[in-house]
Design a protein around this nucleic acid. Structure first.
Lengths: 234, 234
DNA sequence: TGGGCTCCTTATGAAAATCTTAATAATTTC
DNA sequence: GAAATTATTAAGATTTTCATAAGGAGCCCA
């Protein structure tokens, strides 16, 4: 019923903080300060998501991540310190679905957890061993959700908050079609969508303009008639 | 762990719709098409919220509402048809915490449920037998969240979406102090708050301006220094 | 088969509304 | 009086709305 989340971090304050915020969202939290303790939990409990610190005193976070991936497909979010650049890259290759740099804002963490669970429940699939961020598409478009920055052909792409959100959602779906209504709900949550609202259309227009896309022959944002928008893989 | 929600509506489609949307939010749903069936559930289950249709074939929704209130304090949301004006007024006096008019947008319903649960869990108290909407304060301020309209001394108070949200939250708290940070999180959900962001301050300023309030001697929005803002009861 | 019709969806451009920022002032607390 | 918090003001950025255009899909019928 409630999502079960594994949290492993040797920094007690961090682990406890995560626990509090996730419990507040009604998640069932399995918290461990040592990777070894988490191992049996991984075996016996049907988890929905794991949050793992990379720097653990006993077993490396990567190893733990791999152990989980050998048996399970649920999303894994890695916690990394700001300066663990090399580690971060490594993390990309090891089956994690997202990473969060410490220190982080608790609500950002919660939002990320929700996003992963949403995808997992919806498509019952993880990001196939690729971290959500940074996302790279068309070998020319790079988005770093952590930094809230976007690059197009090495040059910064200046996006407004809404534009950034739309592009992020499209990229997260990796080629899947997203309807205007879905975009709307992801961005404005509790607001109410009606077909006469063409705000999304306008933002898409602005995005295409900034990215140099044309409607007739778009390189990035393609219109799927009657369905929505997509950014195709590759 | 998960919130337990009672749903009673003889219109199967409506009840089923509510069930689907609430389950999607990980709530445990106890659904009944007849009030009689719900009675034993009320006795035996520790519920967190009830959604009751007013027009039920066997027992009146009000009666059911009262029965619940005799024993429990969790929030009750009534479902009413658009034209049940008189009933609606009656509902105000019978211990319901909110009402939703049919037809409704599912996501609006979910948002309302969440709002009630949030309050209930936080303060473990219902709205003391007064419906959330319309809210009446100072016998001069009326807010109808259903219609998204606001009246001040019989005259329409034209508010922007954000202003409306801020005023709604303050009114919902009925005199409780709400910090700028809380307001921020209720309105922008996943966004990140920092003290240097004075957007809320500016919106409060605009609200006061439109309502004819002064900082020195405010009739409605009062500043509680170092804490936040409030609109006092009465 | 395809032209022409209509309906529905998406696109466009510009104005209007709204929100955010930033610099500065006023206020409260200690 | 100093430090922190809140208020004020106006400009700048962003979002939304609105009116209108363009494009695709299905249908009818020659």
């Amino acid at each position: 019923m409630c999502a079960k989340v594994l949290v492993v971090d040797d920094e007690h304050e961090i682990a406890d903080l995560i626990e509090v915020y996730l419990r507040n969202e009604n998640y069932e939290v399995f918290k461990f300060y040592f990777a070894k303790e988490a191992l049996s939990c991984i075996e016996t409990t049907e988890l929905d998501l794991a949050i793992l610190d990379i720097m653990l005193p006993d077993i490396n976070g990567f190893t733990l991540c791999q152990k989980i991936r050998e048996q399970h497909t649920y999303p894994i979010i890695m916690l990394t310190a700001k300066d663990e650049e090399t580690d971060k890259i490594m993390g990309l290759t090891l089956g994690a679905d997202d990473y969060i740099t410490k220190p982080f804002r608790p609500l950002e963490m919660v939002a990320r957890v929700k996003a992963q669970l949403r995808r997992y429940k919806k498509y019952n699939t993880t990001q196939s061993a690729a971290v959500t961020e940074p996302v790279i598409v068309h070998s020319g478009l790079v988005m770093d959700v952590n930094k809230h920055e976007c690059l197009l052909n090495e040059k910064p792409l200046e996006l407004t908050p809404t534009e950034f959100s739309i592009l992020r959602i499209l990229l997260e779906r990796k080629g899947g079609v997203v309807s205007a209504e879905e975009l709307f709900h992801e961005i404005w949550k509790d607001e109410y969508y009606s077909k006469s609202n063409n705000t999304i259309t306008v933002h898409i227009r602005h995005l295409r303009e900034k990215m140099g896309d044309t409607v007739e022959n778009p390189k990035y944002i393609k219109t799927v008639w009657g369905v929505g928008y997509k950014i195709e893989k590759q």
